[in-house]
């Protein structure tokens, strides 16, 4: 990490991305006429903001809607309802033709380093493609850019003549990162960028992402199911459960003082390597309920160790519990 990074002033935080009451319902078609018989509420009323230059981690189990949220922010999926504001501009309903210039500022790193690179394109072509689409620079400038990006992510410049199958998972993910950086974006959305990698390679890629954040002044939205990865890289963490936010808090606050019972269970479920530490482990019963038929009231009440009657009836709203610490749980609201 470079030491010359600008110190982040807490008062000067500028919102770069904001989502307001965002919803994504996928229709379930059924019957002979393929009528809509129900909806999978993948993302259900989520409001969030991301400050410029920070890393917001989004954690949740599979099926919690975290990837859908990330894809909607990229406008790879159209939201059913709600607003997405990027740099003060509402991008939730703009036309497809207007989205493309926008992608210059927002790029994505995908989970699977094997599926996200075209096997029939050389690495040089892969990294150059976003620049071609965005019509940046001359051919020579683009080539120079490809070389500098490859070197920046820790690959040799000869790599540009090779094809994806010649690289390991970690190297491929570096190529994916170089591609995402090629348009000099402001925001990078990483959808589980390290979960397919080995632990030792994971930390290399995470460190690279941190270095790049300083060099390119990037804002990260980091989606993961792994709390330890998120802990390493995030400034703030949002916990999702069944399409809704359970808790949003600064990293240290969240890990030291988790308020939502789900966050507590998540943190306690991570096996610890400290064998002398005695702790009460919370083991949740059952599975994640189906998002097609979510429980009434608080979505977590079916597995919550602290559930009471109100939880089954009333949906908890986000309540401010401290500096940037929000939680959606009835334990912290007076009825």
């Amino acid at each position: 990490m470079t030491m010359s990074q600008p110190v982040k002033e807490p008062n000067e935080k500028k919102e770069i991305l904001r989502v307001q009451n965002l919803k994504k319902y996928f229709p379930i078609k059924g019957g002979v006429l393929k009528r809509t018989v129900g909806h999978v509420k993948a993302v259900d009323d989520v409001s969030l903001h991301i400050f410029e230059g920070e890393t917001l981690g989004i954690v949740g189990e599979s099926g919690s809607g975290k990837s859908t949220l990330g894809r909607m922010m990229m406008r790879l999926l159209d939201p059913t309802e709600g607003q997405i504001t990027f740099n003060g501009v509402d991008i939730s309903t703009i036309r497809q033709s207007k989205i493309r210039p926008l992608r210059k500022d927002m790029q994505m790193i995908f989970q699977d380093p094997y599926a996200s690179l075209n096997p029939r394109m050389s690495v040089g072509e892969i990294i150059e493609e976003p620049m071609l689409i965005q019509k940046t620079g001359s051919s020579k400038e683009r080539q120079e850019n490809v070389i500098s990006l490859l070197e920046r992510v820790g690959l040799q410049q000869e790599a540009r003549y090779k094809y994806p199958h010649e690289f390991s998972g970690g190297q491929r993910q570096r190529i994916g990162i170089a591609r995402a950086l090629s348009t000099r974006p402001k925001v990078i959305i990483g959808d589980e960028p390290v979960s397919a990698l080995d632990v030792s390679v994971q930390s290399q890629v995470l460190n690279l992402m941190e270095d790049l954040q300083n060099d390119f002044q990037l804002t990260y939205l980091f989606i993961a199911h792994d709390l330890s990865v998120v802990k390493h890289i995030s400034d703030r963490v949002a916990v999702m459960y069944l399409g809704r936010l359970a808790e949003v808090a600064p990293k240290d606050d969240l890990y030291a003082n988790p308020l939502h019972p789900y966050t507590q269970a998540l943190i306690s479920a991570v096996p610890t390597t400290d064998i002398d530490e005695k702790r009460e482990r919370i083991i949740l019963q059952g599975d994640l309920p189906s998002p097609a038929n979510p429980p009434s009231g608080c979505p977590f009440h079916t597995r919550c160790p602290e559930a009471h009657e109100r939880c089954t009836l009333e949906r908890p709203e986000m309540t401010k519990m401290g500096e940037e610490h929000y939680v959606a749980c009835h334990l912290y609201t007076q009825s």
Binding site: L266, A269, R281
Partner: peptide, 10 residues
Amino acid sequence: DVTIQAQILD
């Protein structure tokens, strides 16, 4: 997932 992992290990 981690919560399910905890169940299975248990």
